[in-house]
Design a protein around this nucleic acid. Sequence first.
DNA 1: CTGAAAGCGCTTACAG
DNA 2: CTGAAAGCGCTTACAG
Lengths: 341, 341
Amino acid sequence: MPAIGDVARLAGVSKSTASRALTGRGYVAEETRSRVERAASEIGYIASPAAASLVTGRTKNVGVVIPFVNGWFFGEVLEGIERALLAAGYDLTLYNVAPSGPERARVFDFFLARARVDAVIAVGVDLDGGELAKLDRRDTSVVCLGGRAAGVARISVDDRAVGQLAAEHLLHLGHTRIAHLAGAGAAARPLSVQGERRHGFLDALAAAGLAPGGRADVSECAMTMPGGYVAALQLLGRPGPRPTAVVATCDEVAFGILRAAERLGISVPGDLSVIGIDGHEYAEMFGLTTIEQDPADQGRLAVDVVLRLLGEASVPDPLPDSGAPLPTRLVVRASTARPAR
Amino acid sequence: MPAIGDVARLAGVSKSTASRALTGRGYVAEETRSRVERAASEIGYIASPAAASLVTGRTKNVGVVIPFVNGWFFGEVLEGIERALLAAGYDLTLYNVAPSGPERARVFDFFLARARVDAVIAVGVDLDGGELAKLDRRDTSVVCLGGRAAGVARISVDDRAVGQLAAEHLLHLGHTRIAHLAGAGAAARPLSVQGERRHGFLDALAAAGLAPGGRADVSECAMTMPGGYVAALQLLGRPGPRPTAVVATCDEVAFGILRAAERLGISVPGDLSVIGIDGHEYAEMFGLTTIEQDPADQGRLAVDVVLRLLGEASVPDPLPDSGAPLPTRLVVRASTARPAR
DNA sequence: CTGAAAGCGCTTACAG
DNA sequence: CTGAAAGCGCTTACAG
């Protein structure tokens, strides 16, 4: 493998000058620079990241901590992050770990402690004080997407407003018996995505005078299609008055509800309206009314923030304030309608 | 950050001895080793990977080249790879690039050329000679999962046998008008996963005396649920005799077929049998007959092979021969039955 | 604007 | 079994 000395020799300069020419740091005569660049590309020179990072302390590598890879939202986010990092010349190191457990501790105590990454993007996980302190010790920048951490930039839609809007859409259509299939942990962790959505749902019902405990029915399920399916079989299959509409905590749960309704012979939207949240790529095929967000773009945005934290000059400056919620869009399809009289 | 010199001082030994004690290479008195280890953990020392790799040439980092992250098979594989690498103390660097295009070239010419990874696992992509040569120049080990590359270890099920088995299941039930929704590119690239499955399907029909061009109907679609949905609407909606059974190139396409059948009022399995391939986590919920494989385990296996190529002694030796196809399993559910007479 | 030298933090022959 | 020294391939003050 050619080293910088080979480039220098070929270009007839010192290693210092070759380095300055190639990294763009420090003064180099224009003529010299192009000569060095030509020499480098001629022999296929690429600087060793290990050697460079040993002296600069920078690795051009960003870690992504993410609880799932399978799952539409997470997959989209990851692809968005990856595209943006590649474009910026950064590597992406993946840490796919469960929200809690020994593996997560190992990632923070060993993998991230090796200081191999310049920054961490935490997707859908909250970081506690100890974890933040460990990252801070190594000067690792942090951005949250979905989850939260004290004093850390955060990319997210306003999930409470989204939950509220979903319920309001159904109220506006005239529904009064509206159920909510919330994500597991919604009640226990009110600041989680599913917790916020549930909160928004309850707010909307309360504002309409439909206090929960009265007609509203909130249960929790895994945020997957089978999760929604099983929960909907219980919700829709039991005796007594059925809700005429359901807010699903996400589109995958909504797909499960549609499937359960089909199985139970409940027609959608004739007997039941269903609204999801996310804008899953399958939503159109299922004719699902939903509130769209753009997770891939959120991933891109997280990278923009990270690069800015790392002082990359080339990043466009006017980013949306990381405190400001990202856009969402109500898309009405065939799964919601006025209730049957 | 503590450096190895700090550990050495605290333990009262030289840096050389500290290094030998910590890496386990070379002779160190047992008593010395434990003293060094205690000193290291006391001050929270972790060796700088940049410095270590500069001298050893090893990075403890594996690159994964993968065309999609979203998509059940790929997500499962990626999670399986990640778990196994973390357990071995390796980082995973993600290169999520389209099968062709400038980004792919950039990954091989720039990112992988930086020699930041010890090995590459190529998932669902074929590597050409030029790409292999580039990796070889940097002494990067390679393993293929799904895709192929000349002279490279390969982890895969026998996709031809799988396609054949799927068709045989339907033949065995008594179907004679059997269609196949193949994955895009199946005919053009016969060695691709979708190409092999198509080949197996045609073999089975030919063996049963049902030559294609006669009754068999093979069309291609994107290997996604909407892909299967759109193609199935065409296949099942057009006038003329309908097939009584369909082999889907993967479960996601099968789900799309089920959805299309529902929309067209075609009952499954009464009027139409559908079999998928993969063992998608949603297959049970959809009552889909399928041929299961275990992509997460394939990911784990790919890591085992990689670690062995890298000479990691701790890897269990008796791995399945990488040439031998991996196990699959026919799981019969409610979506297939005898044809109506 | 350019070069010689030091140093980033490790590991590895080489002596002893 | 242990230590002193060299060196991996860069970048960065520091002189000039």
